[in-house]
């Protein structure tokens, strides 16, 4: 191909456009790390590792709005999705530790390093505040023979490998939750056959259609069918009964000492000055205790779970240990 034959006009305009795009895509140059007194000194962002419109994104947007009201500087949500959450979490860990780039971290932070998806652990961040935790529940059809958890465990013991359960991809949050539950209940990990799915919504369709026997997901994800009397929740894997569903027993009530929650919380990059972390944590606590937050969480069916920076760190430490055991037992460890 001869250059003379090329459409030079297009080529020149293209190169100019390309150059300007490259400039526009460059990360912003760094400014000085400030102190808590003058934080925030500029607009901030919350990295959301999951797609726009999902639950984590909605929570991140609500928090960004509230942070802006409390701190007087705009906060924007940046969705950096992919790699089962690894991409966004990693971007959040590598951001400048000045408190202006926060991350809406999720449950996957406690599990993905054990599974070889990422090397990131909670220790790559300064925990700021836990905002939400939704416990796993085991849900069956109303016309199924299992009226209580004891019935279900009895059936699994008598017919190992027969019961099919769905809820997430293999190795996803609810798969790990039910695997840990089985271990604690003295059942083999493969006593239940896990049917992988793209998420809890399609697996509830499979359950309604009779294509699987049970689903493991959070109660709000199946609440419209439970209220309509088509599905029945047998147990919730929460540390104590959920205030919204006081009649639903916990696993601990039923004699299985196990709880599993999908949590969400705000974290800052490692090395963020402690007084800034404390300041954001205090603001988050104020937001979570507000009426608007309760209203938002109720509408979305999310369970409020508040932990300040230190309590959040302790919680993350415990989560790490809990999931290590499960992931090793299931053979998902890499």
């Amino acid at each position: 191909m001869m250059i003379g034959k090329l459409n030079t006009n297009v080529l020149i305009t293209l190169s100019i456009a390309a150059a300007s795009l490259l400039v526009a895509c460059q990360p912003k140059s760094a400014s000085v790390v400030g102190s808590a007194a003058d934080y925030p000194s500029k607009s901030g962002s919350i990295i959301c590792p999951w797609a726009p419109g999902g639950g984590t994104d909605r929570l991140a947007r609500f928090m960004a709005d509230q942070l802006q009201k409390e701190l007087g500087k705009p906060f924007v949500v940046v969705n950096q999705t992919g790699g089962s959450g690894a991409v966004g979490h990693s971007a959040g860990a590598l951001a400048k530790p000045d408190g202006h780039t926060l991350t809406m971290a999720t449950f996957e932070l406690s599990t993905m390093h054990w599974m070889g998806i990422s090397h990131l652990t909670w220790k790559d961040y300064e925990p700021v505040a836990e905002l939400n935790a939704d416990a796993a529940a085991i849900i069956v059809r109303s016309d199924s023979p299992w009226k209580s958890l004891k019935d279900l465990i009895g059936y699994i013991e008598a017919n190992p490998g027969k019961l099919t359960m769905s809820g997430t991809a293999t190795g996803g949050a609810w798969d790990l939750a039910r695997a840990g539950f089985q271990l604690e209940a003295g059942l083999a990990v493969d006593a239940v056959r896990w049917i992988p799915s793209k998420g809890s919504a399609p697996s509830i369709v499979e359950l309604l259609g009779g294509h699987v026997d049970a689903v493991c997901c959070s109660v709000p994800e199946a609440i419209s069918q439970i209220e309509a009397g088509q599905l029945r929740a047998l147990v919730v894997m929460a540390p104590e009964r959920l205030s919204a569903y006081p009649n639903l027993p916990t696993a601990i009530d039923e004699g299985v000492n196990w709880s599993a929650v999908g949590w969400r919380g705000i974290v800052a990059p490692k090395g963020t000055p402690p007084d800034i972390v404390k300041k954001i944590s205090d603001v988050c606590i104020k937001i979570v205790e507000s009426e608007a937050y309760g209203e938002f969480m109720r509408k979305n069916g999310f369970n409020v779970e508040l932990k300040s920076n230190e309590a959040f760190a302790t919680f993350l430490e415990e989560q790490d240990a809990q999931w290590k055991t499960v992931i090793e037992a299931t053979g998902y460890a890499r």
Binding site: G82, S84, M115, G116, I117
Partner: peptide, 15 residues
């Protein structure tokens, strides 16, 4: 299976 295929350890390729 939960396994990674052709990702070469790259998080971006994971999805």
């Amino acid at each position: 299976s939960g396994a990674q295929r052709f990702t070469f350890g790259n998080a971006e390729l994971m999805s």
